[in-house]
Simulated scan of single mutants.
Amino acid sequence: MVDELVLLLHALLVRHRALSLENSQLMEQLRLLVCERATLLRQVRPPSCPVPFPETFNGESSRLPEFIVQTTSYMLVNENRFCNDAMKVAFLISLLTGEAEEWVVPYIEMDSPILSDYQAFLEELKQCFGWDEEEEGEGEGEEEEEYGY
């Protein structure tokens, strides 16, 4: 009877050691998974941006300079997200509403090359919604003289 108890106790100790080892391995795997999850969450949720998310643009000409400054600033701070012209143009398009959104639809429908050219897209946007940089610094008299009014 004593021999049976000793064998049973020995079997229990061996089983306990095996379970302790397995538990230790599982805890290590859990630690690695928690670290990996934290790394992935940092990638999905980047740190807060010092530049606020730009407001939408509905085609109101007086708001165009502000819209361009906001979007340019946001893209500069988040340059890793806007790695090419197509991404920049897509971002601008996502912020268009109303008349400005209606303006861009034909470019999308015909898969225009300006959808992959940020500067060309900006120039079209400026031309359509009345922002001419050349006229900004000139006085009215100079404009009349230049256009023969």
Rank of each mutant, 00 (worst) to 15 (best):
L13C: 14
L13H: 10
L13K: 15
L13I: 03
V14T: 15
V14W: 06
R15I: 11
R15G: 10
R15Y: 08
R15P: 05
R15M: 11
R15L: 13
H16G: 02
R17V: 11
R17M: 10
A18D: 15
L19Q: 07
S20T: 13
S20M: 03
L21W: 03
E22V: 01
E22M: 09
E22P: 04
N23Y: 13
N23Q: 09
Q25C: 02
Q25A: 02
L26G: 01
M27Y: 09
M27I: 00
M27R: 14
E28M: 05
Q29A: 08
R31T: 02
L32A: 06
L32E: 05
L33D: 13
V34C: 00
V34I: 10
C35T: 00
R37M: 05
A38Y: 06
T39I: 09
T39Y: 03
L40E: 12
L40Y: 13
L40S: 11
L41V: 08
R42C: 10
R42I: 08
V44G: 00
V44T: 06
R45I: 14
R45V: 15
P46E: 01
P46Q: 03
P46H: 01
P47E: 07
P47K: 07
P47V: 01
P47W: 01
S48L: 08
S48G: 06
P52C: 01
P52G: 08
F53G: 06
F53H: 10
P54T: 10
P54G: 04
P54M: 12
E55M: 09
E55T: 04
E55N: 10
T56G: 05
N58Q: 11
G59S: 05
E60N: 14
E60C: 05
S62F: 13
S62E: 14
S62K: 04
R63F: 14
L64T: 13
P65K: 03
E66G: 06
F67N: 00
I68Q: 11
Q70H: 10
T71A: 11
T71S: 12
T71P: 05
T72I: 07
S73H: 11
Y74T: 08
M75Q: 01
L76V: 09
V77H: 04
N78V: 04
N78G: 00
E79F: 02
R81Y: 15
C83R: 14
D85P: 08
A86E: 07
K88T: 06
V89P: 04
V89I: 09
V89M: 04
F91V: 06
